[in-house]
């Protein structure tokens, strides 16, 4: 279980997140939705250790992690699929996967994990020796997910799964994430602008606006709520 307690986070002098508290259940799928610039990526980057909260704390399965450097947080069992995928473009698919398994624990299981990833995303096996930047958008997202899974995380953070992808591709990848969650018991914390997809996939949802949490509930109930329908779904028609 990931427990975020009252964090304030800044980008330089600019505060982006105010007093955010969240509880993310270990085994489920949780989502954080919000519009452009609302602070979703900031929250994720803080969990991953790229940003440090000025106030508040974050703990994972009872261990405080906000004081750890980012690479130790990976070691502790949290991996992140960054917004925009951020692949090592000059490297092959295989090398990208290898970079995901850099911690000592992950390195020992590298071959088994890679075999599993190739099982989940067979296209990556076909493309194993190609440079990452020759892949299509969907394949790149699969590689980004596979690369983060290489560290054998217990919790996977995903920033904007749907970014720049066709609806059918999003559908397919979100289904795969669901399977990974159900079969492997890897918890997933998904951050999305695509509100419908996110709330359909997740069990629990949180809403962030201007750096503050303004709503929390069962995903299915949020999807049906006036708050979400007016603020997010209503906007789509405009």
């Amino acid at each position: 279980m990931l427990e975020i307690t009252g964090i304030d986070v800044f980008h330089g002098d600019l505060q982006a997140v105010w007093d955010v508290s969240l509880i993310i259940e270990g085994k489920g799928i949780t989502t954080l939705i919000g519009s452009n610039g609302s602070g979703k990526s900031t929250v994720l980057a803080t969990i991953a250790g790229l940003l440090k909260p000025v106030r508040g704390s974050i703990s994972f399965d009872g261990v405080r992690i906000d004081t750890l450097p980012a690479h130790k947080i990976v070691d502790a069992g949290i991996a992140m699929v960054p917004e925009g995928r951020r692949l090592f473009r000059e490297m092959t698919v295989m090398d990208n996967l290898e970079m995901g398994a850099i911690t000592k624990r992950a390195r020992q299981m590298k071959n088994e994990t890679m075999a599993w990833i190739f099982d989940v995303f067979p296209i990556l096996k076909e493309r194993a020796r190609q440079r990452a930047d020759t892949l299509s958008g969907g394949e790149q997202q699969m590689l980004a997910i596979g690369r983060s899974l290489m560290s054998q995380p217990r919790l996977l953070l995903v920033d904007e799964l749907s970014l720049g992808l066709a609806p059918v591709v999003v559908q397919k990848i979100s289904q795969t994430l669901d399977e990974i969650n159900k079969t492997k018991g890897i918890g997933i914390f998904l951050v999305e602008q695509n509100v419908v997809m996110a709330l359909e996939l997740a069990e629990t949802g949180h809403i962030i606006e201007n750096g503050r949490i303004v709503g929390t509930g069962k995903a299915s109930e949020l999807l049906a709520s006036d708050q979400v329908r007016q603020a997010y779904l209503g906007m789509e028609g405009e």
Binding site: H71, M80, R86, F88, M91, D95, I102
Partner: peptide, 23 residues
């Protein structure tokens, strides 16, 4: 592996951290 992790850091410093590389 170590050489590649140097190369990874040079391509994307923050993302290398997210992979667990001690940058």
């Amino acid at each position: 592996t170590f050489g590649k992790s140097i190369w990874a850091v040079s391509q994307d410093h923050d993302c290398a951290m997210l992979m667990g590389i001690n940058v």
